[in-house]
Nucleic acid binder design. Structure first.
Length: 345
DNA sequence: CTAGGGTTAG
């Protein structure tokens, strides 16, 4: 029946991709009814349940596998990691008493997946240390993930230590993604000079490099420098992408750079041919106006823009209203937006 | 035929 099994595996994969849990369950019972039994199929079931977001069923299907292989473990671990669950080991102990504190198959990718899931928390450091104690050497992906973790946690000291370690290793410093991660990390921690140091040390820079340094300056309220760097980026022949614009506009909101953000939006959407303007960009602009105290302008924009504001856009506007303790006439505005936010959410 | 890792935003 190997032919039948492989067809079913493909069908299960399709259910996972389209998150069709009902159909996946149906296939599951068909498999049971037909008496098919193979590790490949059993693994496919675990993956399908994981992809459909049903972690419980994934765990259940996993626990029924008669002969688990390296795929079984890593599929289940990925299901946990993708949903940001850090309690993989604990859950394993509950369902499999013989499961010892760590899974039997650890490789660099599964370690990285766990660390990635824990990014921004202390747990990422615990895992990072344990991984090395157990004899797995970090790769540049591990380092990029750890730098990202420090950026999320705004842990300047920890990130610096990792940066120093990378410099000692000698091999990683030239890697583009490491440098990009470092620029982001230092900017997030308010260490703009250090971000610039990394930027200047680079021999090759891509759109992400530029976008990150432009954002970094905006994030820290340095509009003039940010605008200059944005000009340099254009002179290098790099066109801002849709992500670049969201990125920089968001940073402008945080850095309080209303004018730069507004001019940037107009410039990019008007001067870059075929630029894919979308509702997220308008949301950013609404957010920028709202946080800058221009609530009425923000509301006008929401009413006139070519896209419906997203739930997120409405929420951010409602939050701006709340933060600015509206009084008098604007009270009705507040009520309206609150209503809109609820409706949108 | 069943896995998989990274950098800019939300």
């Amino acid at each position: 029946m190997s032919n039948g099994s492989s067809t079913i595996a493909v069908l299960l994969r399709e259910c996972g991709i389209s998150r069709d849990l009902a159909r996946g369950r149906q296939l599951h019972s068909q498999i049971l009814g037909a008496g098919y039994r193979s590790t490949v199929l059993e693994n496919s079931l675990v993956r399908m349940y994981g992809d459909c977001g049903s972690l419980d069923e994934a765990v259940d299907a996993f626990s029924r596998i008669s002969s688990r292989n390296v795929f079984s473990w890593n599929i289940l671990l990925s299901a946990f990691a993708q949903r940001g669950h850090l309690d993989f080991a604990r859950t394993m102990l509950e369902i499999l008493p013989e499961f010892d504190t760590s899974m039997p198959f650890h490789d660099i990718v599964s370690w990285n997946a766990m660390i990635f899931a824990a990014a921004g928390t202390k747990e990422s450091f615990v895992l990072f240390r344990r991984m090395q104690l157990e004899g797995t050497r970090p790769t540049y992906v591990t380092y990029a993930t750890m730098i990202d973790s420090c950026a999320e946690a705004a842990a300047l000291g920890d990130g610096r230590a990792i940066h120093e370690r990378i410099l000692q290793l000698g091999y990683f410093p030239g890697i583009l993604v490491i440098c990009n991660a470092l620029i982001n990390f230092y900017s997030r921690c308010g260490a703009v000079e250090e971000a610039l140091g990394v930027f200047q040390s680079m021999r090759r820079r891509d759109l992400i490099t530029w976008s990150t340094i432009v954002s970094g300056y905006a994030w820290n309220g340095l509009g003039e420098r940010s605008a200059q760097l944005f000009q340099c980026m254009l002179l290098e022949g790099l066109d801002p992408s849709s992500v670049t614009l969201v990125n920089v506009l968001t940073s402008c909101s945080h850095g309080g750079l209303l004018d730069f953000g507004r001019r940037l939006f107009v410039f990019v959407t008007a001067e870059v041919p075929g630029f894919p303007v979308c509702r997220e960009h308008y949301d950013c602009l609404v957010d920028l106006l709202g946080r800058s105290g221009r609530l009425e302008e923000a509301l006008e924009l929401m009413e006139s823009m070519p896209f419906e504001p997203t739930a997120l856009g409405r929420m951010s506007f409602a939050a701006s209203c709340r933060k600015q303790h509206l009084e008098g006439d604007l009270n009705s505005l507040y009520e309206d937006t609150n209503y809109m936010a609820l409706k949108g959410a």
